[in-house]
Design a protein around this nucleic acid. Sequence first.
RNA 1: GGGGAGAUUCCAGAGUGGCUAAAUGGGGCAGACUGUAAAUCUGUUGGGCGACCUUCGGAGGUUCGAAUCCUUCUCUCCCCA
Length: 429
Amino acid sequence: MNFVQELRWRGMLHDTMPGTEEILQKETISAYVGIDPTADSLHIGHLVGIMMLKHLQNAGHKPIVLIGGATGMIGDPSGKSEERNLLDEKTLRYNQEAIKKQVSKFLNFDSSVNNAAIVVNNYDWMKTFSFLDFIRDIGKHITVNYMMSKDSVKKRLTGETRDGMSFTEFTYQLVQGYDFLYLNQNYGCKLQMGGSDQWGNITTGTELIRRKTGGEAFAITCPLITKADGGKFGKTESGNIWLDPQRTSPYAFYQFWLNCSDDDSKKYIRIFTLLSEEEIIKLERLHEEAPHTRVLQKRLAEELTITVHGYQELEMALEASQILFGKGTAESLSKLSEETLLSVFEGVPQCHLSPEEFNRELNIVELLAQKTDIFSSNGEARRMLKDNGVSVNKTKVNDSFMITKEMLIRDKYLIVQKGKKNYYLVIVQ
RNA sequence: GGGGAGAUUCCAGAGUGGCUAAAUGGGGCAGACUGUAAAUCUGUUGGGCGACCUUCGGAGGUUCGAAUCCUUCUCUCCCCA
């Protein structure tokens, strides 16, 4: 199976430029995907692009990860993002290294392989490119008419909201187009891949290459990842799901995938794992037979947690899930060793209290809203208590509940739950 | 430079002197049901136990009383030159 076919059955193919499949068959090429270095970690929204590169590399081609140090400062007009901040070079390099480290869990960077992945940063070639040079050497080749016809631009000018658009944003596609040209000339890169929202930007690049050098260049886009309920993929109440364990604990990461809806997990397992088609179909059949066992979600969560965090962290996440969602009781919690307890609750918000607070009995409302910031106001805490939404050490409590020293697990810990899934660890010391 | 429209609680969007902490929808959170799912239903969504306090772009003013009227400032969008 070739690369394009692979993407197709996995539901990762939205559009290709004519000739793309042929050139991939005919020769070994290099292709790139761009990533904005806005943080020192990737989040799971970046994973689709990475997986495209992964399949590309598996098919024998050379993947290039382009860090958008320059373009990231401008901001794509199609995104609803606020004004971008200028990253200083030090932060930029730091983020780049961090991102490379994460990407290397997926792609092979071993330079002894002839299709080893590489990371480049467009800041390196943009920083010395003067405005005058740019408009003369690059801007000349693309007409404003052409640029205006892009959806991302049109939407801003004539769409419902008519936001208007700064010149800077308008320039974006040209800068991204130049990246492609640069990579084409310096790395022989003939293909750019990205989300379907990138189509316009990518074709500006291929157009630029054709007009300036007469060279050939191609595009592949994948559908934007959606959720069955229409929500934005990769976001939870608490924000992005990051690959960095400091930002999203392996437990939370595992839980994210485990909580996917049935429909979504069918899609995601194709996109985010390397399982074969036969195996996925087999898993789906198992899932149909006994949906409640969530075969697909479990496998998806396991595969990804292993790739990103490793076996050991997966074990930990499984154990934590067992304790938090199994038939955990106050007793089972108190039986845990301190070490296990802490590892289970790693990544769970923690609050610290001094033992003096417990010299007398402490009212639950006071604890939740004043001593800690589990709730932002007394009223909210009371409301939630009244609605039967708060548990202490796995036991539901009401608003007259008093906390005593004796309730502390190992004389130090108190497990507070807001609803079913939101845990808080109160540490008394 | 000229003209017009607008800025409301997380978002969208009603409200044009007292009955308005502010309709409705979305989103969030919780409860029931369940598979730690989806769908559905229910409750809740400024703070305070309460008397009350703080909110409708900013600042002043009119009034017994203002999100609503006036003045001024800031910002956004549209149209004309």
